Computed example of a mutant assay.
Amino acid sequence: MTNRWRGEVALTIDGKLHQMRLTLGALAELEEDLDASTLLELVERFESGRFSARDILALLHAGLRGGGYQTDPDALAQAHIEGGPVAASRAAAELLARAFAVPQ
């Protein structure tokens, strides 16, 4: 079960459901991996629609690690993501949004 207040986002990869979430360490790695000077810059990429497939894969990979699933970035790039690129980009954007959401 996905706990959105924990920042979790569900995604089915190669037929298996995974719970992803971004940890602080994963966010720091994303800044470096995606050449973003700040987290705000990364968020703005998604909000403005200026994100790349590389951005999506990096976010999903970080979210999977944060959710406890270890995978190789190259293996993730070759995996079947249920819903295709649209579902992958939505999940990546949701990961970012939930990482900074304040429970109400």
Results as ranks from 00 to 15, higher is better:
50 R>L: 14
24 L>I: 05
91 A>F: 10
98 R>N: 10
24 L>H: 13
79 A>N: 07
55 D>C: 10
67 G>W: 04
62 A>F: 03
84 G>I: 11
47 E>N: 12
18 H>D: 08
91 A>T: 10
26 A>E: 15
97 A>V: 10
26 A>Q: 05
81 I>V: 13
34 L>N: 00
104 Q>L: 08
89 S>P: 08
81 I>Y: 09
90 R>N: 08
77 A>R: 15
17 L>W: 03
49 G>I: 04
84 G>K: 06
22 L>P: 11
68 G>W: 13
75 A>M: 10
48 S>Y: 06
10 A>H: 02
52 S>A: 05
37 S>Y: 06
37 S>F: 12
48 S>A: 15
97 A>W: 02
49 G>K: 15
103 P>T: 00
79 A>Y: 00
11 L>A: 05
101 A>M: 11
66 G>R: 05
61 H>K: 01
52 S>H: 10
81 I>E: 07
2 T>E: 14
97 A>T: 13
19 Q>C: 14
56 I>N: 02
23 T>F: 03
54 R>K: 14
21 R>V: 03
31 E>C: 01
6 R>C: 10
46 F>L: 11
37 S>E: 12
65 R>L: 11
82 E>M: 12
39 L>P: 00
28 A>I: 12
99 A>Y: 00
61 H>P: 07
33 D>E: 14
41 E>H: 13
97 A>P: 00
21 R>Q: 09
98 R>K: 14
92 A>V: 03
2 T>F: 15
97 A>L: 12
32 E>W: 09
35 D>Y: 06
99 A>V: 00
57 L>W: 04
18 H>K: 14
80 H>Y: 13
35 D>C: 00
33 D>W: 02
91 A>M: 06
103 P>V: 05
48 S>M: 14
101 A>C: 01
83 G>I: 14
92 A>C: 00
97 A>N: 02
56 I>Y: 03
96 L>G: 04
51 F>K: 01
82 E>Y: 05
51 F>W: 15
59 L>D: 12
1 M>D: 03
68 G>K: 13
53 A>K: 06
21 R>D: 04
104 Q>V: 03
49 G>W: 13
64 L>K: 10
71 T>A: 11
63 G>M: 07
3 N>G: 02
2 T>V: 15
50 R>F: 12
57 L>F: 11
60 L>Q: 06
25 G>N: 07
12 T>E: 03
30 L>G: 02
95 L>P: 08
50 R>K: 15
76 L>Q: 08
